[in-house]
């Protein structure tokens, strides 16, 4: 099912890596020639670090250690840090595939010119997603470095967690793109920001979900950031198990669905 979706999203129109690369290349060119873009990039890095310092360290001093369902005992900062990492991967990817992507195709008309070339809508989507990942990976790599320095994980587990954060970025980036194709205007972004913030607060980020009523636990287990946080946490704390694989599978499906519908929506919207 998943492989079929991925395959049909990617191969159906005959995706050429060269053309996907050309879309990435365009964004690299834009990055090189604009100082303002660097500012946006840098600002994205500080947010999770500030959360880690204020809540992980500050609030952590009041909380002390916490015990997980499987019996692991973790210092609070060690518990919070992977959640900030996963959230940062989500936010980094989504900033590109929602806000920037929307601006490019609604206002800057960046893709109008591209569509006259052999590049297909799905190749534009893939190129933007790869670009979003490159951006998101810079954040997560630096953040993982910070975690190693603060002794919140080891170098080995940080290296293992890095590809997991990329999966998080791909999954959220792909789904973010569907939202972008459905956006009516900027006001819809407020809704999305609220949803993202709710995910950020409740997805086992600051407290294990066992602290919530059972009904809430069920709801949380359906939402994507929960799976991202749990997967990344299993790795940075050095305790991967079968559950980790289930979380990863959830995100792979999410990415496949995202790509499939984005490709279809874009074709319908752009090739009128």
């Amino acid at each position: 099912m998943v492989t079929t979706l991925v395959a049909s999203a990617v191969t159906r129109p005959g995706v050429a890596p060269v053309r996907v690369g050309a879309v990435v290349n365009r964004n690299m060119g834009a990055l090189r020639s604009g100082a303002s873009y660097w500012l946006v990039l840098i600002s994205g890095f500080f947010e999770p670090v500030f959360y880690l310092l204020s809540i992980g360290i500050g609030v952590g001093a009041l909380v002390g250690d916490i015990t997980l369902v499987d019996g692991q005992v973790l210092p609070y900062a060690t518990f919070v840090a992977p959640a900030m990492l996963a959230t940062s991967a989500m936010n980094g990817a989504m900033a590109e595939t929602t806000f920037n992507f929307f601006f490019k195709f609604k206002y800057a008309k960046t893709y109008d010119a591209v569509l006259s070339t052999p590049v297909r809508p799905i190749e534009i989507a893939l190129g933007e997603l790869v670009w979003a990942m490159m951006r998101g990976s810079v954040y997560t790599a630096v953040f993982l470095g910070v975690m190693v320095v603060m002794k919140l994980t080891t170098i080995g587990w940080a290296l293992a967690a890095f590809p997991a954060t990329m999966l998080v970025g791909f999954a959220f980036g792909a789904v973010g793109m569907i939202f972008t194709t459905l956006m009516r205007g900027w006001q819809d972004f407020d809704l999305m920001a609220t949803a993202q913030f709710a995910l950020f607060l409740f997805s086992a980020t600051f407290a294990p979900i066992q602290n919530y009523p059972v009904v809430f636990q069920w709801i949380i287990q359906l939402t994507p950031l929960y799976h991202a946080v749990e997967m990344v946490r299993d790795l940075t704390t050095g305790h991967p198990d079968w559950g980790t694989a289930v979380h990863a599978l959830y995100l792979v499906v999410m990415m496949a669905v995202g790509l499939y519908f984005t490709g279809r929506r874009l074709e319908r919207m752009l090739l009128k």
Binding site: R26, G29, A30, S33, A113, V114, T117
Partner: peptide
């Protein structure tokens, strides 16, 4: 195999004059 010059200029404002051409060429492989 087509060249298209649309009614409204849709040049890429984030790129230089030269980059507008080189970036576009990349879309054609």
């Amino acid at each position: 195999r087509l060249g298209v010059c649309p009614q409204l200029d849709n040049l890429d404002p984030d790129l230089t004059v030269r980059e507008n051409l080189t970036t576009y060429a990349r879309y054609f492989g």
